[in-house]
Computed example of a mutant assay.
Amino acid sequence: MIKIGITGGIGSGKTVVTSILEVMGIPVYIADEQSKRLTDTSPVIKEQLIALFGATIYTSEGLNRGLLASYIFNSADYLARVNQIIHPEVNRHFLHWTQQQQTTLCAIESAILFESGFDRIVDYSLMVYAPLALRIERACRRDGVNREEIERRINSQMPDEIKKERASFVVFNDNNQPLIPQIQEVITTLTPLTT
């Protein structure tokens, strides 16, 4: 089975690409969703977060996300330590998930594919690229926040140009080039490698 890592900056259109792949019959693991679920359900993550922050990091409903955010957004050290707790569990869970799939291709979607090291557990990476102004416009509309907030989020991520250099494939989601033929070309390139 070939594993593809899908990444791209805020507002690039990763969700659209993910939806297209799923329609094509390629299962996609959404790392952000699974990470949130695992922080509530994984005994390994829970034990380590409690050891780091104390028992108040969890409530009867699960992880106290507001409290965790207050720690990690104010400390690069805490952010790194939390990532060292969560990312290995997401990696393990993704690899277990791939074993359940009955397809020759599957994918993981992660905005932080390279930063998290998830790129090391996939065979190829696909970056969804869109011009910065378009990304800001999309993200403002989607999230209902102002331009400054979106720019702050974008500036906290790995620059697109670095992702483009590291990616095995780049698809352009710029409202000019049709996405489906670009994705189909990637799949056509990879399909013979699965036999």
Rank of each mutant, 00 (worst) to 15 (best):
A76N: 12
Y78H: 15
K36Q: 03
P43K: 08
P27K: 06
V90S: 06
Q99A: 10
E115M: 06
P27L: 07
I45E: 12
S12Q: 02
S116D: 01
T104A: 13
R65E: 07
E61W: 07
G54R: 08
I4L: 15
S60T: 14
F53M: 05
T15H: 10
T98E: 00
G9S: 09
A51F: 03
I108D: 08
F114L: 01
Q34D: 02
G62S: 06
G66A: 06
V28Y: 11
E89P: 01
V17H: 05
L113Y: 05
S12M: 10
T18V: 10
G25C: 08
H96P: 00
I108F: 07
L38R: 10
A111I: 08
K46S: 09
L79D: 10
E115I: 07
S35V: 02
S35N: 14
G8I: 11
E33K: 14
V17P: 09
Y29W: 03
N64W: 09
I30R: 04
A31V: 06
D40W: 07
I108M: 08
I26H: 00
E47H: 04
V90G: 00
N64Q: 06
S116M: 08
A76T: 13
I86T: 11
T41P: 01
I112Q: 08
K46D: 00
N74R: 13
G54P: 04
V17Y: 05
I4S: 02
I4T: 13
T56A: 12
S35W: 06
Y71C: 03
S70Q: 14
H96M: 09
A51I: 04
A31T: 02
W97V: 02
V28M: 09
P27I: 10
A51N: 14
A55W: 03
Y78W: 11
R81T: 07
L79A: 11
Y78N: 15
N91E: 14
I50E: 13
T15E: 08
S70C: 01
D77R: 12
Q99E: 13
H93A: 11
T18W: 10
L68K: 13
R81F: 11
Y78S: 14
E109G: 00
G62Q: 14
K46C: 04
V82A: 09
